[in-house]
Nucleic acid binder design. Structure first.
Length: 296
DNA sequence: AGCTCTTCCTGAAAGC
DNA sequence: TGCTTTCAGGAAGAGC
């Protein structure tokens, strides 16, 4: 699924095609992942897409006001989250839409902004300008913008595992499973360490690792494992630079140890057992008895 | 506060 | 070959 670098790449692609375009109509397929499907048809037609912004893993389309200049209606924002398999792209109507395309936003230049999402873990909703501040408040800081001091403050004293906190969008917004593992590998910190036990040096290293990993990933237009492609249908290249994620059994780029996989915060977590020392009392993820699926 | 487990959904790959 | 199980870039909610 798309994390910050992938969403940033999609946004940059959409910015090249959409601002200034007006939405003329909306057609929907399955709508169980849309907060208020009827509202899309009522509120979107006639509005122009003015700006596109990434907020963590969310994409915000800022729309123009509608109605008389003397008493314009409230401004709305179309907010999209790609979930695990969501895709956005601009297409000509004669191009056949792939299966699981559930949103068509017809534009005034004859093209269509399309939303495709196989698993439908994505989200589409409308948020009025008056609620945008509250929307931001529910999320943590942008990992590429947060200061070293604020980063320390966010994690200091937290008894949770560092990986769980990196994945928590209320702490930092935009990091997911791939970039959490890549950043922890680079910072040489085991994913199961408790944030409270990380010293100032380690925290500084982690922040730098996150910045460097995310920046490189954006430069390479994200990671494509199975589904992800950018707004132009092009896959990313950063998967070639992965040092931990998905590399179980392969040798560590730094020390040649064998990369292992364990479960932390309920997610597959890849790490180097030598570079990333396990916390005391935590066994290395060598033997992980796989639950022999119970009945049912 | 924080952990694990479950759920949402579909499809690919691995297992037997 | 073919059926079954596991797993997947996310996230929220329940229960402990």
């Amino acid at each position: 699924m798309p994390e910050l670098p992938e969403v940033e790449t999609v946004v940059r692609g959409l910015r090249a095609a959409l601002p200034g375009r007006r939405i003329v109509s909306v057609r929907l397929g399955k709508t169980d992942f849309i907060e208020d499907p009827a509202a899309l048809g009522e509120l979107l037609p006639g509005r122009r897409i003015e700006r596109i912004e990434r907020i963590g893993k969310f994409i915000r389309f800022e729309l123009s006001a509608r109605g008389a200049a003397s008493s314009p209606e409230e401004r709305w924002n179309l907010i999209v989250h790609l979930g695990m398999t969501g895709r956005l792209g601009v297409h000509r109507p004669e191009e056949p839409a792939p299966p699981h395309t559930h949103g068509f936003f017809d534009l005034d230049d004859g093209r269509e902004l399309r939303y495709t999402d196989i698993r439908r873990f994505g989200q589409i909703r409308l948020v009025p300008d008056s609620m945008i501040a509250a929307f931001h408040d529910r999320l943590g800081s942008e990992p590429l913008e947060i200061s070293a001091r604020a980063f320390r403050r966010r994690l200091a004293g937290r008894r949770a595992r560092i990986k769980a906190l990196l994945l928590d969008q209320r702490v930092l917004r935009g990091i997911g499973n791939i970039y959490a593992d890549e950043s922890l590998w680079k910072a040489r910190i085991h994913p199961a360490r408790l944030a409270a036990q990380l010293n100032a040096r380690e925290l500084a290293r982690l922040r730098q690792a996150i910045r460097s990993v995310l920046r490189s990933a954006i430069r390479l237009r994200g990671s494509s494992i199975a589904d992800y492609v950018d707004a132009n249908g092009k896959p990313g290249e950063y998967q070639r630079r992965h040092r931990a994620y998905g590399r179980e059994g392969k040798s560590c780029f730094s020390c040649r140890s064998i990369i292992r996989r364990t479960i932390v915060a309920g997610r597959s977590s890849y790490f180097c057992p030598l570079c990333q020392r396990a916390p005391r009392g935590k066994r290395m993820g060598l033997s992980r008895p796989r639950k022999s699926a119970a009945r049912r």
